[in-house]
Each structure stands twice: as structure tokens, then as C-alpha cells.
Amino acid sequence: MSEMTAEGGHGAVPLSGVPVQPEPTVSRRDWPLYEVFVRGKRGLNHVHVGSLHAPDAEMAVHAARDLYTRRNEGVSIWVVRSADVTASSPDEKDPMFAPSGDKVYRHPTFYDIPDDVPHI
């Protein structure tokens, strides 16, 4: 199996063996890629919104502020080096996810949830 990366937030993709036209030249970029998570004003949790290049983590937070919260979307930003994300592999899709496909009883739908319990 080829080496995988989750860079760019598009799920696991192979690092080599992908046909590209024209052949890529040396990248202009030598800054690492960061994944960006933003929590909205009324959001409960940080949500992945995209990725960006930055020279270090502090500047990545600045760039994320300018790229992903400039329309007043967020109140909190997390960034994490994309290289630090370990992703599941598409090759393992069936063993990973198919077994949960028929187990409806795992949803909490067979008992009553009180009205004042939110976010289930």
C-alpha cells in the first residue's frame, strides 16, 4: 500500500503514484500545511473549515483569522500541522465503516429523551 496523507482536508490521499500533468516542478512553497478548525459564535465545537500554509503555528492562526473568519464567522481558532493528522485509509473503508451500517439500535431512538436535553 502506498503512503497516505490527509493534507488539504480531503481525506486520505496517496502521496505517490498519482498521475499529474504536467509533471510537477519543485514547489514554491516550503511552508508546512496546517488544518484549520473554527468555532462559530453559536457553534458548540470547532469545525474543520480548510487548510493553509504558514511558516509556523502562530502565523497559521493569524492566516486562519484572515482567511476563514473575515466574514465574522468565528470566535475561536485551532490549527494543527496536517502532517500530524493520522487518517483512516480508503482501502480499509469496508472493514472500518460497513459493520455499523445495519445497527440501527445503536441510535438512541428506542427510549424517550427529555425535551431539555439538547445536542444528542
Binding site: V38, V47, E73
Partner: peptide
């Protein structure tokens, strides 16, 4: 409000 798919959905829903 149920599960929020994206930060943007949450904002448009809230206003």
C-alpha cells in the same frame, strides 16, 4: 437546534 454540519450553517440558522 440539532447537529450542526458546518460552522457556517450554524451561523445562518441562528440569525
Amino acid at each position: 437546534m440539532g447537529h450542526q454540519e458546518t460552522v457556517y450553517d450554524a451561523l445562518t440558522a441562528a440569525h
